[in-house]
């Protein structure tokens, strides 16, 4: 069994009276692709912020590649990268220069930087668009550039924060396929935050279904699900959807009850 790249132990996060994450514990082994699936407000972004070191838990511990992401922020340099829902490219840099951003910060020599940028642009089918500025690219091409930027530093762990959700279905499907190929070729671990059930089970090895406040409702072997339900995914999709809705209902009822009691 591969060592764990992420370990989350008994983590809770409170924003004042609001409980965003509740006694959350899970681990992710190195080299795996794990989807965090949940509805809006399920604390997925809060979890990402905990993992990348932008937020400290109220209680519990988070370890990423063996480090505390808040206190040992520097030690994680070059180990993590992220692709967001929007491409977030620097508008004054060409696509190639955007792919080079992380490598530049890591002080990769210029020639190597250029070579690696070209490689990752080829991987996302943008080999002829390297000299274009973001304003000259389509939404899908920008998102491809953003993905290439995340892979180009050669990280051990990539986070995708709903990176395909703003794209049309055809573009998103192509990009998801590229992402799987790229992550398999580079043996990178990945945490994919999404609200799309299809997307989660399409690209991940493992799917964690989140309820609100962030806690695990289900932990699925995605390959197994694809094997069992690949031909007829709809009923399984409904099952997952119902699981999230029921959890939300139960939470709402519990909350109303506690309000009445208080």
């Amino acid at each position: 069994m591969s060592p764990n790249i992420i370990e989350v132990n008994d983590v809770s996060v409170w924003f004042g009276d609001f409980n965003a994450v509740s006694d959350l514990s899970f681990s992710i082994s190195e080299g795996s692709r794990v989807a965090i699936l949940g509805r809006t407000g399920a604390g997925k972004s809060t979890l990402l912020n905990l993992l990348v070191g932008n937020l400290e838990p109220t209680s519990g511990t988070v370890r990423v590649a063996g480090h505390d992401p808040v206190r040992e922020r520097r030690e994680l340099q070059g180990l993590l990268s992220m692709a967001y829902q929007s491409p977030r490219l620097l508008p004054w840099r060409t696509a190639r220069e955007n792919v080079e951003v992380g490598m530049e910060i890591l002080r990769v020599p210029k020639a190597e930087r250029r070579e690696r940028a070209e490689h990752w642009l080829r991987m996302v089918h943008l080999d002829n668009a390297g000299d274009r500025y973001p304003a000259q690219l389509s939404g899908g091409m920008r998102q491809r550039t953003s993905l290439a930027r995340a892979f180009a530093i050669g990280p051990r762990l990539i986070f995708l924060d709903e990176s395909f959700s703003a794209l049309d279905e055809v573009t998103a499907k192509g990009l998801r396929a590229d992402f799987v190929t790229m992550s398999e070729e580079s043996s990178v671990s990945a945490v994919i935050v999404t609200h799309s059930i299809e997307e989660a089970f399409e690209i991940a090895d493992r799917v964690l279904v989140f309820g609100r406040p962030a806690r695990i409702l289900g932990d699925f072997d995605a390959a197994e699900v694809r094997r069992k339900h690949g031909d007829n995914f709809l009923p399984f999709r409904e099952h997952i959807h119902q699981m999230m809705v029921d959890a939300e209902k139960a939470d709402a009822e519990a909350e109303a009850k506690s309000l009445v009691e208080s």
């Binding site: 089918h125 943008l126 668009a129 274009r132 500025y133 304003a135 000259q136 690219l137 389509s138 939404g139 899908g140 091409m141 491809r144 049309d168 055809v170 573009t171 499907k173 192509g174 998801r176 396929a177 590229d178 799987v180 190929t181 089970f201 399409e202 690209i203 694809r226 690949g230």
Partner: peptide
């Protein structure tokens, strides 16, 4: 479930971008 897909034909670069010839 995943197959390698080429760039979608829907992905057209912006035509009104400044800096373009």
């Amino acid at each position: 479930m995943t197959t390698s897909t080429p760039v979608s034909t829907k992905e057209k670069p912006s035509s009104s971008a400044a800096g373009a010839p």
